[in-house]
Design a protein around this nucleic acid. Sequence first.
DNA 1: ATGCTTTGCTTACATCGTAAACAAGCTTTC
DNA 2: GAAAGCTTGTTTACGATGTAAGCAAAGCAT
Lengths: 237, 237
Amino acid sequence: MRESGSKATQIHTHQPSGKTKLDRRTILEAGADFIDQHGVRELSMRRLGAALGVEAMSLYRHVPSRENLLDGIVELIMDQLYGDPEVYLEPRNGWQDYLFRLAHGLRRMALAHPRIFPLVATRPPEAPWVRPPLRSLRWIDSFLGALTSSGFRPEAAVAAYRAFSSFLLGHLLLEVAALGAEIGPVETDDGQAQETGDLSEYPQVLQLQDLLSEDRSADEFEESLENLLERLGTLIR
Amino acid sequence: MRESGSKATQIHTHQPSGKTKLDRRTILEAGADFIDQHGVRELSMRRLGAALGVEAMSLYRHVPSRENLLDGIVELIMDQLYGDPEVYLEPRNGWQDYLFRLAHGLRRMALAHPRIFPLVATRPPEAPWVRPPLRSLRWIDSFLGALTSSGFRPEAAVAAYRAFSSFLLGHLLLEVAALGAEIGPVETDDGQAQETGDLSEYPQVLQLQDLLSEDRSADEFEESLENLLERLGTLIR
DNA sequence: ATGCTTTGCTTACATCGTAAACAAGCTTTC
DNA sequence: GAAAGCTTGTTTACGATGTAAGCAAAGCAT
């Protein structure tokens, strides 16, 4: 499995015992888990090493720096999209279905890793045309191919790509931020859960407080996505 | 100039000489300048102190922590909106004009401080209904008031607030990120400006490369904003 | 003058990312 | 088998960071 050298070296698994042999892949996975559980702020090389039962410096045999580690984690998470059976690399039922599935796949990814998604969103991309949250050339190529093969002119496909990115980025970032607000900063533990400040200066907010607190993100996502798809439809040749 | 206590203490300016008396406000301004010039990563308490001709620990008399400093800088930048003569706190020519001006004001703010805007976008908000990039209760109140007084039902005003936030967040974050890609990570200085990797595996990207590199953000902003306003119009009672 | 409060400086500490030298296995070659 | 080399983890070390604690000087009120 997993590929690599695999010539004749693979005759006997040398360490079938407990300790899962250090490895870039295992480090990235452990890093992702760590961030899921404790947040990026808490992730230090020493702590991640400890989580793997290893000294901090050992990680540097497989990962050149902390920055690169974070990039690797982002890439690892993004790769989950390939494993999502609901998302297709090629359009099978038209471009709308393709985009619909892609958007929902990305949303699932963001909601599965709310502490990691901000990294996906803000880490500097490797090329100017790589726009978060679609940070992989392979997916971008797939995206553009899906649209051009469905009758979009090149300009329209690119415009659609841009509109799609910024819609997803905005919506998902706010959605995971709202999630994080409940889970996030370890509770302010000075008594109880952050007293709602004095809103008497803000009558509208005060009055609409209930509506504002309501979580309609799933519906809003659906509606906005639908609207976006309609709008993109008008770009078609 | 600059205001402050100004009761009776101000009879004689004790330090009329060069050094501009330390102060939360001056620290925040210096911090904002620093980030504008060098980026958040480079901002350390010691360096900011040095920039102000003062020891790091002196800052702690006016600012409780680095985290709080960053929050303060975000708030400071957000307050520039009040000084923008093109943006009104009350709707003067209907809600569409109000939103149009607000959106453009925020865009000007983001483009004026591309290294700071990601902070505006991602710092954990003080209340769950505070959605970046509109991080101030006063503006949120203004927003909701503008819409309800223009005939939006409460649910519609809140829905509009959400749609508006996520549109702006996505678009502006991507726009400043693209800006930062040109200015950003101090150049990789290993020869010249980051060779365009091998795109032979990605024929669509390769073929649309020119279109993808084109900067149409201003136009896209205009068009998407217009579309958003139209769409919000259908929510009106 | 005397004391109080404000403000900045000095020193100190735990923690961080990571460079460098080293050691203990493997793998390869005879 | 042994010798040589490579791979992988450890040890030690350094400079930088955020910030707690105590100190000192300078402004104010008495």
